[in-house]
């Protein structure tokens, strides 16, 4: 209840802050209460208590196959973005590269263009013009929007690591490869972990790209849920949402315990 003291001291600021928290949090609480409601439609107050909607959500084939697709896509796109992004970050920070700021700008450029626009470009040019499948287009698109995170977040932790340590290892006779794997990589580990976590969550939750690059064969969970909400008005979706909320809380706790929330998100707006 840290806000109580400043609230008393600063009535206007305190009121605005409370309103802000209400708008951020209260709708989520209503989703959870709906998930346990015995009523057949989404309504308030909840009618009775049941766990049936969780059964319905877990037994829903389109949700479960979409969940699998989203996990797969998020894992592969994250791995790809890191595999491409980490070496590039090291080269940008430690190497002497002509036109460094242009290169850096290029790597961050997918962040500047709206994701919906990236989705349209890939849909048109990769799926329609080149005729490639939507899973390929999705992987390219997701990796492209994750690259800026990978470069930024690992770059931030690389900037903190002293290059002299690596040089000392080389001076003591370690090969460049050995110096990299035994000195640089461990220094980068928190950065890489943060980038991986942020990338996975970003890809898993992504709507714009998955929306434009959708196909019957490979559908992601957010798009499947959007369709379901538009066509049905029962609490199954609330139960699915509550399950996602629980999983997100677990991810958040892992993030807080390992590197700390603020550090992970510090990388977003620098």
């Amino acid at each position: 209840m840290s806000l109580t003291k400043p609230t008393n001291a600063r009535p206007v600021l305190g009121t605005l802050a409370v309103l802000g928290y209400i708008i951020m949090i209260v709708p989520i609480l209503f989703v959870v209460s709906t998930a346990f409601s015995a009523g057949r439609t989404v309504s308030f107050p909840p009618k009775g208590f049941t766990l049936d909607w969780f059964g319905a959500a877990l037994g829903n084939n389109s949700f479960m196959s979409a969940l699998g697709s989203s996990m797969q896509l998020a894992l592969i796109a994250t791995a790809l973005a890191l595999a491409i992004g980490v070496p590039a970050t090291i080269a940008m920070h430690r190497g002497k590269i002509p036109g460094k700021s242009i290169v850096q700008g290029l790597f961050l450029s997918p962040l500047v263009v709206p994701e919906l626009v990236v989705g349209l470009a890939l849909y048109q040019q990769i799926m329609v013009v080149l005729g490639l499948g939507n899973s390929v287009a999705l992987l390219i698109g997701h990796t492209a929007i994750l690259l800026p995170y990978a470069v930024r977040v690992t770059g931030a932790s690389l900037a903190l690591a002293d290059p002299a340590i690596e040089e000392a290892a080389r001076g003591l006779g370690a090969s460049p490869l050995r110096a990299f794997f035994t000195v640089t990589l461990p220094l980068l580990r928190p950065g890489i972990f943060s980038a991986a976590l942020l990338s996975f969550v970003t890809s898993f939750n992504n709507v714009p790209l998955s929306l434009l690059l959708q196909d019957r064969q490979f559908r992601t969970l957010p798009v499947t849920m959007l369709d379901y909400i538009q066509q049905n008005y029962d609490p199954t979706i609330a139960a699915m949402s509550t399950l996602l909320l629980a999983a997100t809380v677990v991810v958040a706790i892992i993030a807080e315990r390992t590197v700390g929330f603020a550090k992970i998100f510090g990388g977003i707006n620098k």
């Binding site: 840290s2 989404v42 939750n205 957010p222 849920m225 979706i237 997100t248 929330f261």
Partner: peptide, 29 residues
């Protein structure tokens, strides 16, 4: 409190937006 303000960023936009349907819908709270 800061963590509580950042946490929603990790949660799906679809889930967060659905909450408003529960609140604002014709049978909403």
């Amino acid at each position: 409190w800061l963590a509580l303000a950042i946490f929603p960023l990790l949660l799906s936009n679809v889930v967060r937006t659905f909450g408003w349907i529960v609140l604002l819908g014709s049978q909403g709270a």
